[in-house]
Each structure stands twice: as structure tokens, then as C-alpha cells.
């Protein structure tokens, strides 16, 4: 089977759906939903911040799963899937950090607060950066796959430990700074948050499918060009 592009009928439909969801999210989040009583307009950041954080966790789950499956099955498909998930998780983690500190500015008065969640996310960002760096370091295909699977697995295991330790670290020193969303939350706000999560998950899936296919095509190109080079070399040998 040859893939000639990264799109298919299904992914195109998913892409259109994703765009429609984001349009709906923009309408809900920016226009229709009311400002929060305590947080004011800053609450609107939550409609992208929380979904982005959830999407990054989804990416890490896929990264961990793909890493384990590669080490078990030794199939490059799992390696490429894990790599695609790591890159996308990195983007969503960055987005979480940026929206988090933008939210912190009006709420806490600073862009950076040593809040457990923010701090844990920063460590998470660096863990993912390490995975991407190992992939970029090259080596032969399976060597690279083995190394990145180990890094991916170790990073995934570290995520809950980091989260727990940072939580504990801060809670011993100060009360939680992050005010919980009010339980009697406005219906429209809750719905906006829900649409945000669905939209980001759709975007995550779309990115993952395409990034995986691009990576797969890259592998095909590598193999093809190697095969071509061998054929060419043989032809030269025949002439002389």
C-alpha cells in the first residue's frame, strides 16, 4: 500500500469538524458566555487553557503507550506514533504554559507563580523536549526508536511523580493559590468548557493522524532513496 498524501476522506471530515468546533468555541467563549463574578474576563482563558492541558496529557498517554508497545513488538509503527504524540504534546504543553501565565497576570499579579500545576507543567515541557532532542540526535532507525522509547517511557512514569511531589511541596508551604471553579458554575460557561475540550481533542486527533502519516512517509522516502542508490550503484558496476 502506498500513501500518497496525508489526508483522507475521514481526516478531511475531521478537519472540517475541528474548524467548526473552534468557530463555535470562539463564539461561545468570547461572545456568548458571561464574565466570571470573581475572575472577570480572564475566565475566558480557561476555555483554551484546560482543554490544552487535557490534550497534552492525552499526548503523553499515547507517547507512553507507543513507547511500551515499541519495546514489546519492535515495530516502527509504534515508534512513529509515539514520536508524533510527543511532538504534539509538546505544543499543547507550551500552549498550557502560555495561557496559564497569561491568566496568572491579571489573577495573581505575576506571569509566574510557583503554583503546583504551573510548575509541574514546566517540568513536563522539559521532559518532552528531551524526547524530541533524542529523536533529533539521529542514529539508525531502530537505535533511535529504542532510545526514544526508553526516554518516552521514563518521562511518562515521571509525570505523576512530578505532579505529586510538586503538589506536596507547595501545599506544605502555602494554601492552594488556584481558586477552584465555582461549583454553581453558569450553565453556558460549563458548556463552553465542554465545547473547548471536544474541539481540542478533535484537533489533537487530527494532528496525530497527520503527523504520524508524515513521519511514515519520511521513513518510506528514506528506504526508497536507499534502494535507488543501491540500484544505481549496481548499474555503475555493470557498465565498467
Amino acid at each position: 500500500m502506498t500513501i500518497t498524501g496525508t489526508g483522507s476522506r475521514a481526516t478531511r471530515a475531521l478537519g472540517v469538524l475541528t474548524l467548526a468546533l473552534f468557530a463555535l468555541l470562539a463564539l461561545l467563549g468570547l461572545v456568548l458566555s458571561p464574565p466570571d463574578a470573581a475572575m472577570g474576563e480572564a475566565v475566558r482563558l480557561f476555555y483554551v487553557h484546560v482543554p490544552a492541558a487535557l490534550a497534552s496529557y492525552a499526548g503523553i498517554a499515547v507517547l507512553g503507550f507507543g513507547s511500551v508497545m515499541y519495546l514489546w513488538k519492535r515495530s516502527l509503527t509504534w515508534d512513529l506514533l509515539a514520536a508524533a504524540a510527543a511532538e504534539i504534546a509538546l505544543v499543547f504543553t507550551a500552549l498550557t504554559l502560555v495561557t496559564g501565565s497569561l491568566w496568572g497576570r491579571p489573577t495573581w499579579g505575576t506571569y509566574w507563580e510557583w503554583d503546583p500545576r504551573l510548575t509541574a507543567t514546566a517540568v513536563l515541557f522539559l521532559l518532552l523536549l528531551g524526547h524530541v532532542a533524542v529523536r533529533a540526535a539521529g542514529g539508525d532507525v531502530h537505535g533511535r526508536a529504542r532510545r526514544s522509547a526508553v526516554v518516552g517511557l521514563l518521562a511518562t512514569v515521571d509525570v505523576p511523580i512530578v505532579r505529586y511531589s510538586v503538589d506536596w511541596w507547595r501545599s506544605l508551604h502555602q494554601p492552594a493559590t488556584l481558586s477552584k471553579l465555582d461549583p454553581t458554575i453558569d450553565g453556558l460557561m460549563l458548556f463552553s468548557a465542554f465545547v473547548g475540550i471536544v474541539a481540542f481533542m478533535a484537533a489533537f486527533t487530527w494532528f496525530l493522524l497527520h503527523r504520524f502519516r508524515v513521519a511514515w512517509l519520511e521513513e518510506q522516502v528514506e528506504e526508497l532513496s536507499l534502494a535507488d542508490a543501491i540500484v544505481e550503484r549496481r548499474a555503475e558496476g555493470g557498465r565498467s
Binding site: V123, A133, A137, D158, I161, V162, Y164, S165, V166
Partner: peptide, 13 residues
Amino acid sequence: TVLPLLFLPVVAP
């Protein structure tokens, strides 16, 4: 160069 990048975030906890 890659060792510190991999190692230090993991041992943050």
C-alpha cells in the same frame, strides 16, 4: 549536551 537535558527534569521530584 543531551544528558543534562534528559536527566535533570526527571530528577526534579
